[in-house]
Design a protein around this nucleic acid. Structure first.
Lengths: 221, 221
DNA sequence: CACCCGATGACAACAAGCTGCCACCTCGGC
DNA sequence: GCCGAGGTGGCAGCTTGTTGTCATCGGGTG
């Protein structure tokens, strides 16, 4: 039994001072999972870290960021993500809640931000192989099941209204057009018109394809 | 900055001796993520832990296990999972690789198994709130996107062969039956037979529904 | 009011999908 | 060889889906 390499720091400033060098030491992988991009209360902290990251050079480093939709809310964040993707980083969006910030560097070092409590935020830095490895695997599991930000944003999300959702549900329920139309209080002709519009919105050539797309875009729940 | 509550133990026996009491102290939640159920090299260790768990009483405790399909391979594991679900525990299956074993108790204590190296396996036990909280959130993200074991097993996963995958791809491509059949070197009659079989396997009443299911089950990639 | 517009629904014609039936072929066992 | 099982394909008849056309209705607008 042995005490392990885990330290806790309080506040951005101390983190930068104590662990800033780690960001510059990235060799091949930088992954982070977070709810949004507002972990650093003071912009200076973020700048300092970004500076360190760039100083280390980004060639050959794969960057992966796993975020929640909250990170797409404001324009500043979006622009940051555009930068990341433009630089070859990959960004995905998870519908599940995420920790406030988890950073893993080269599978060796892990930095976890504590909850947004009053006072300076706590950060935990560890190099324990078991800890980092385990969390990294969990990260990958979450990553694998999240949608790419491109697909999430530009893809479509055709902003369906209630009627269209109703049609979608009827299709998903496996009703025939006849039955579905009756249930929705529409004529069969109109129902089919709706289906056709939906398929156009989903850029699907067949109903099977439309089902597939609807599933991909998570329009079923 | 402060050293945190992280200890590392080597081997099942030491883990049971040092941290076994934690398993008995479960109050409301016991979650674990693992590739399979073979973390404990000696069955005695598992029995010891199961004993401790039961000793603590399971009323009001939610048990969640996130595993990979590997955990469903052998009959013994399946029976164990049946027990878990019968006792009210929830089991999900993730298609992504998972850490060897991550256990979180009541959101307070976390136990991570190290890689299956030669010699006794290392376990890391920590109570650091930031660490445990962060990993717990990551676990939830992975959990949310995994399939319930019931749906995974009984549902279908109809173990598609290459032909069926080809049909699926043709459907997903949006071809008409005519075109798809020609591409696959089949008669239209046979192609449609295949589609019908596929739909039966997916328990779908319409092609739309089949597309939805296929997407859900990740049979497109 | 007359007018236009968009949404709806009826009808029709056609395309696509679904299935039962039967004939054919091939393979393996007798 | 003979037989049966299982996969295949053609055909036919039916259902379902797709689309165009047209009449109708109701709500603005001049």
């Amino acid at each position: 039994m042995a005490a392990d390499e885990v330290i806790t720091v309080r506040g951005d400033a101390e983190l930068v001072a104590r662990a800033g060098h780690l960001f510059a030491g990235v060799r091949h992988e930088f992954v982070c999972a977070a709810r949004d991009l507002n972990t650093w209360s003071q912009p200076e902290a973020r700048h300092a870290i970004n500076g360190r990251l760039r100083a280390g050079g980004t060639a050959g480093v794969t960057v992966r960021k796993l975020l929640t939709p909250a990170a797409l809310a404001d324009e500043v964040s979006r622009r940051h993500l555009d930068h990341v993707t433009a630089a070859g980083g990959r960004v995905r969006i998870s519908s599940a809640p995420l920790p406030h910030e988890t950073i893993i560097i080269d599978g060796r070092v892990m930095i976890l931000a504590g909850p947004d409590a009053p006072g300076p935020r706590e950060f935990t830095v560890t190099t324990s192989a078991a800890l980092v490895g385990g969390v990294h695997a969990l990260f990958l599991a979450a990553w694998d099941n999240a949608a790419d930000v491109a697909g999430y944003l530009s893809g479509d999300r055709p902003h369906l209204d209630d009627d269209e959702r109703a049609v979608l549900r009827a299709l998903g329920a496996g009703y025939t057009d006849e039955t579905a139309a009756r249930r929705l209080g529409l004529s069969v002709r109109t129902y089919r018109r709706r289906v056709a519009e939906l398929m156009a919105a989903l850029e699907a050539d067949s109903r099977f394809q439309a089902g597939l797309r609807a599933g991909e875009l998570g329009l079923t729940g």
